[in-house]
């Protein structure tokens, strides 16, 4: 019982949760307007599209893969949405086409990684440039601004009589589903197994390529949804929509305790990391801290978190070694 309590207190999820609480309390006390509903709604809405990108990325990184093309997929899907609307298509059809485009992008990544066998970092680095380039080829430099009111309302207003912005709803629906998949299904356990050791997983009968391909397709589809939200939030389909979002998303995943080497990390941790980044950015924003300094702060947070976990692991390993040695000495002393 004692060890489980200690394990719980030192688990990364709980450290993050504690950090979140400290940050929220500190910010509420020091920044006027932080605790207000208006700031809550804006800060949450601001991350609504990036938050979606985080979910499939966490799964991919746990499976020892990565998809850095997510922001470009989001941008391209937004462009498809805008062009469909411009051509006179109804909104539901335009959104469907955008989601389809994102899914196809994800499938392309998936095929190149699983069936052709190329490393995912290189593949998605290529498609990052490819999909972003397509945005400019398709649209030129001029954004499409004729976005229906219902969509811009979705991106800019809150649910009536609450301070919950509409555009965070897709995340609130999807996040529990991703957590359930990862922590409660056989496929989720296989995802961990692939990340923990692909060869062992293969011998254990896990169909690696099928799961990997599925993850890339889901990543594409969810990125497309994020792209639709970006269009809604910014009232335009721009070729530079969602530009650079992949870095924030990857930061949150690592901050959430997902291992770079795969096989480790949990959804609650990732969600706490998301809240932490949202809260930190919001606090700095109200303090009129520049965009550059905000990015620096988030970067520093990531480095510090890595240092903290690394140190904790070392201390833990050292303690274990010492206990084992003491045990061995006692046993040899009493034959």
């Amino acid at each position: 019982m004692r060890t489980s309590l200690r394990a719980r207190l030192t688990s990364w999820d709980y450290i993050l949760a504690a950090l979140v609480v400290v940050l929220l309390v500190a910010a509420s006390l020091t920044q006027p307007g932080f605790a207000g509903g208006f700031n809550f709604a804006n800060s949450v809405s601001q991350m609504s599209d990036k938050a979606l990108l985080v979910l499939p990325l966490a799964l991919l990184i746990i499976a020892r893969e990565i998809d850095i093309s997510v922001a470009s997929v989001a941008g391209l899907s937004g462009v498809v949405l805008g062009m469909a609307l411009e051509a006179g298509g109804p909104l539901p059809l335009a959104i469907t086409l955008a989601l389809l485009a994102g899914t196809l992008c994800g499938a392309l990544n998936g095929v190149l990684v699983t069936f052709v066998g190329l490393p995912s970092l290189v593949v998605t680095l290529g498609t990052l440039a490819l999909f972003r380039g397509l945005c400019y080829v398709l649209l030129g430099g001029t954004p499409i601004t004729d976005i229906p009111l219902s969509l811009t309302t979705f991106g800019n207003e809150t649910i009536p009589r609450t301070y919950v912005p509409w555009d965070i709803v897709p995340f609130l629906v999807l996040a529990p589903l991703f957590a359930l998949y990862l922590h409660r299904t056989a496929a989720g356990r296989r995802t961990y197994a692939i990340g923990g050791g692909p060869d062992i997983a293969r011998y254990a009968g896990v169909r690696l390529n099928r799961i990997r391909f599925g993850l890339f397709v889901v990543s594409g589809a969810v990125a497309a949804l994020a792209g639709v939200i970006t269009v809604a939030r910014t009232s335009q389909a721009a070729p530079d929509g969602a530009l650079g979002f992949e870095l924030d998303a990857i930061t949150v995943v690592f901050l959430g305790g997902v291992s770079v080497l795969g096989g480790k990390g949990r959804m609650p941790g990732v969600c706490w990391a998301l809240v932490l980044v949202v809260g930190l950015r919001s606090m700095l924003q109200l303090g009129n801290v520049s965009g550059y300094a905000q990015s620096a702060a988030v970067g520093a947070l990531l480095i510090l978190s890595l240092l903290a976990t690394n140190t904790a692991h070392r201390v833990h390993a050292a303690l274990t070694r010492r206990r084992l040695r003491a045990l061995a000495v006692r046993e040899s002393a009493v034959p």
Binding site: F38, P143, T145, Q236, A238, Q285, G291
Partner: peptide, 30 residues
């Protein structure tokens, strides 16, 4: 799009006026 949080910041701080150099026509318009 990057200008949106800054507009919101100025709203939350209850400034009397905002002077913006638009990075594009519509990004921060809403």
């Amino acid at each position: 799009a990057a200008q949106i949080p800054f507009v919101n910041q100025l709203i939350a701080q209850k400034v009397g006026a905002i002077v913006i150099s638009g990075s594009d026509l519509n990004g921060a318009a809403a």
